[in-house]
Structure formats: structure tokens, C-alpha cells
Simulated scan of single mutants.
Amino acid sequence: MKQRVKEKKEVPQDKAVSIFFNTVGILILIVEAYPLIYVLSASFSSSDAISMGKVYLWPVEFSMEGYKMLVQNSQILNGFKNSIIYMGLGVLLNMSLTMLLAFPLSRKELPGRNLITVFVAVTMYVSGGLIPTFLLVSKLELVDTLWGLILPTAISTTNMIIMRTYFNSTIPEELREAAFLDGCSYTKYFLRIVIPLSAPILAVIALYYAVDSWNTYFNALIYLRSTEKANLQLVLRDILLANQVSSGDGSYAENSKLGVTIKYAVIVVSCVPMLIVYPFVQRYFTKGVMIGSIKG
């Protein structure tokens, strides 16, 4: 006897809950999206319109002055160049060290694997602190150098654990056995089999490192001294400090020749590199994040 499957009717309470969460989600989206829309609109508005508070959703008195001044300012261009260099070299070092640590820890035949993992995991909760780290960097004569900004954050324990979990739970053990039967060493197995099969997680971790490096502000403020080596975030900080809002009628105090709109233009342009990179790793992003979170 065939069983008839009746469509489940939506209970009024469920409908009310759905409407409630949809409404809350829309409100959260508006709250988070408005600052982005405002910054984008302000970057294409005149300084007077911004100072008088006329900009809300759309550009007022359309102007490209901020972007023109951005291109003409050598300090900002130098900051862009430095940030790209720091990010490129940093991600290369980050990924190399993370893979070289994650792969051995994913192998069950490694002696003391669990103990090493515990020691590595402890660093997520206990660290030397800012002062000992700065003293160490200073003793190594890395202050105001490229490596002083890259080496202290050369590897992330969280990213390493995610990658190790991927190696351990996603790549079949039969592949290793077959490779070793064909005379493959650990090095060849890692380079020719593990890395090609790990494209999703490698793309995700690389994006994590790239975003973190691009947005680096505090470490750059601590370890960098010369203006020539400042990254974009430090340059943006100087621009924001040079255009503080006065306590009077809300107008901007022009302490530099950069103008008011240029700080919004810098914020918009500083987001462009990540917006360009993300579409290329988007197809791997969801898959890699889900694998790292579910198969823990």
C-alpha cells in the first residue's frame, strides 16, 4: 500500500519566526552596508558637501578631486607599493611555513606528533606579550626593516591547525600507500600529490594571510620608523589625523593639503586589491572553510 506524503503546512508560529529573523537580517544588512555606501559616496563628493553634512546615500556635487590627489601624492603611492611588497613576501613565507609544519603533524607515523601539536596549540592562548616580542625584534636588529614586520607573524597557529586537519582527514591514506609502493618519497608525495589536492584549503589560508597582512596596522606602527617604509594603513592613519573634525560647527580642520575627500578615496582604493583577489578564490573559499570547520 502506497503511503501518501502530505505536504507539511506552515504553522503560523513558524511563519512569524521566519518573518522576525528576515526582518532582523535586513536591519543588520542596512546597518553594516550604510557605512560602506557612505564612504563610497563621500569619495565622489566635494569637500564642502561632506563638511556641511549633505552626503547620505548618493554623491553630492560630484567630484574626482580625491582620486586625483591620491594619484598625485607620492606618500600614498609609496604606501601602496610597500603594502603590496609586505603582503606578497609575507603570504609566501606564511604559506611555506604553515604547509611545512602542518604536513608533518598530519602524519600518524611522526614520533611525538600529539605532544608537538599541544606545544603549538598552547601558543594560541599564551604568548610572550608585546614588550618581550619587541625586545626580541630589537635585539635581532629587525626594527624598521621589512623582516621586522613579516617574521613576528610568520605563521598562524589557527591556520596551521586548519590545514593539518585538511591533510589528515581529506586526503585518502591509500594515496600515500600507492605512492610509496611506486617509490615516492615524502617530499615527492607532498609536492606532487598533497599540494595539488589541497587547492581549496590553500586558497582559503592564503586569503586569510593576505587580508591580515594588507590590514596590518598595529605591528607596522610598532616596528616601522621611517616614512619611506610605511605601509598604506600608516599613511591612511596620518591622513585621518591630519583631517580631524573640529569641535565647533562640524567642519573639517584642514591641517594638510590632502583635502577632506582624499581620506575616503584612500579607504575605497585600499579595498580594491582584496576585491580583485577574492573572485579568483571564491569557488574554493566555501569548500575550504566548511572542510576546516566540520572535519575538526
Rank of each mutant, 00 (worst) to 15 (best):
S156H: 12
I171P: 00
L146N: 04
T165V: 01
R176E: 13
C184L: 05
I171A: 06
E174S: 15
R164G: 05
L146Q: 11
C184H: 05
E177M: 04
T170Q: 00
R164D: 04
I162W: 10
I150Q: 09
A178G: 01
I162T: 09
I161W: 05
I161N: 03
L149I: 13
I161M: 08
A179N: 02
L181S: 08
E173Q: 12
N159K: 07
N159F: 08
P172S: 07
C184M: 12
M163Q: 11
Y166T: 02
A154V: 13
P172E: 05
T158I: 15
Y166F: 14
L181H: 07
F167M: 02
I161V: 10
W147C: 13
W147Y: 11
E173R: 11
N168E: 12
A154N: 07
N168K: 03
T170D: 05
A154R: 09
N159I: 01
M163N: 00
P172Y: 04
I162Q: 15
G183T: 10
L181E: 08
S185H: 11
L149G: 08
S185D: 12
M160Q: 01
T157H: 04
T153V: 13
L149W: 07
W147S: 04
L146M: 15
I150Y: 07
E177T: 10
L151Y: 11
W147F: 15
M160N: 01
E177F: 03
D182W: 13
F167S: 01
I162K: 10
N168V: 00
W147N: 04
S185T: 15
T165M: 08
T170S: 03
L149Y: 14
N168F: 04
I161L: 14
T187I: 13
T187G: 14
T157M: 15
R176W: 04
E173G: 08
N168I: 00
L149R: 11
G148N: 07
M163F: 01
C184Y: 05
A178P: 00
P152M: 13
E174M: 02
N159P: 06
N159C: 11
Y186F: 07
I171L: 00
E173L: 09
G148F: 03
